[in-house]
Design a protein around this nucleic acid. Structure first.
Lengths: 193, 193
DNA sequence: AAGGGCATACCGACCGGTCGGTATTGACAG
DNA sequence: CTGTCAATACCGACCGGTCGGTATGCCCTT
């Protein structure tokens, strides 16, 4: 682990524990075992740490969505794979999600808006998949794609508050349960009641 | 609006806009139109503001749950009413939810743990309702009460990021859509497929 | 005259960021 | 193989400024 990586890891831990503002650059360098000079050799501002921490996760998740959509599977499979990927990658990086969810808005306006826009695009793509599934006639249209997607994203955005890697359920199992629930929620009733 | 209320309102606005740490006590008193002396006359620390802001909402929501459970309605009705109440009260106080979700953990250990415990108790009561619904045989047990509840709470915890009072859908409509979705997700399929 | 309800001036701690300097490395000339 | 030199990586004392909180005292109501 080189200096840059040590700094980033220490920053992610401390930001998650105490918050961005409440963490001083001194604390970061102390935990990383480097000096302030070293930190400012690699980063031009404290804010850069915040950006780097989240950007890596978001890039990964976007790539996952690209991969899944490119397969052109049937709607149910696609939705299942999206939920799987989201839950698993989020559970693997809970600290980054904690930090960004809490303090993402403290980035400078430019970066914040860029990330916000990218995230909105991600959401829109998921909603499009849901809408197309409903329009195919195979699924119920009772619930709007917006509300369904908010249930999914709300779930994943909150994972960091309750998921523990050593808990009784693995991320994969949780993902399957959520996918079952969402697909059942979208399904039509056979008796049309 | 008396001094105390003006301070609390200003603090809620500023904390939601900029974050707790990033907001100085000076800014709070400036927006409230009072002085620092006045603020410290009513509150003994900045942290008290954070606590007061969230505590009022949480107390209200707990009272709502008490009321609903006391009615002993059938499971579907109870679940629907819980979701209704949660969505509507949360939508009405989005700023408080923003602030607390982001910075609740900055309270001193005592208060934080108290609120955390109270919130966990709230969640457990909701899960109990779901479990009883499943055990009655009327609903599917495919998805665990935990995952269902996390979908609900994830949804409500995230409302503040997208809900706008002047948006196309009222909180009541959103609540109905979510309740429909959750109840459908919990339902059994008639063909047993 | 007493005390609640403030106003104002101020304090010590701490913060993000800077800057002059040093240690280490590696390419290249002789 | 060795000496030179520049680039990279890092050090840590320091600075201007801000922050949460306090001390003191005035006013105005009762």
């Amino acid at each position: 682990m080189n200096t840059r990586e040590k700094v980033l890891a220490a920053a992610e831990e401390l930001f998650a524990e105490q918050g961005y503002d409440a963490t001083s650059v001194q604390q970061v360098v102390a935990r990383a075992g480097v000096t302030k000079g070293a930190l400012y050799h690699y980063f031009s501002a404290k804010e850069d740490l915040l950006f780097e921490i989240y950007n890596s996760l978001f890039t990964e998740q976007t790539a996952g969505l690209d991969r899944i959509v490119a397969q052109h599977s049937d709607p149910a499979t696609t939705i299942r794979e999206i939920i799987d990927d989201l839950v698993i990658t989020t559970a693997a990086r809970t600290r980054a999600v904690t930090v960004f969810g809490r303090e993402g808005s403290r980035l400078d306006a430019q970066r914040w808006q860029t990330l916000q826009a990218a995230w909105r695009r991600y959401q829109d793509r998921v909603r499009k998949v849901i809408r197309e599934a409903q329009e195919s006639g195979e699924f119920s249209s009772t619930t709007s794609p917006e509300v369904v997607s908010w249930a999914i994203f709300g779930f994943t955005n909150d994972i960091h508050t309750w998921y523990r890697p050593d808990g009784p359920k693995s991320a994969a199992v949780i993902a399957k349960e959520l996918a079952d629930f969402v697909l059942n929620g979208l399904s039509k009733k056979e008796d049309g009641k």
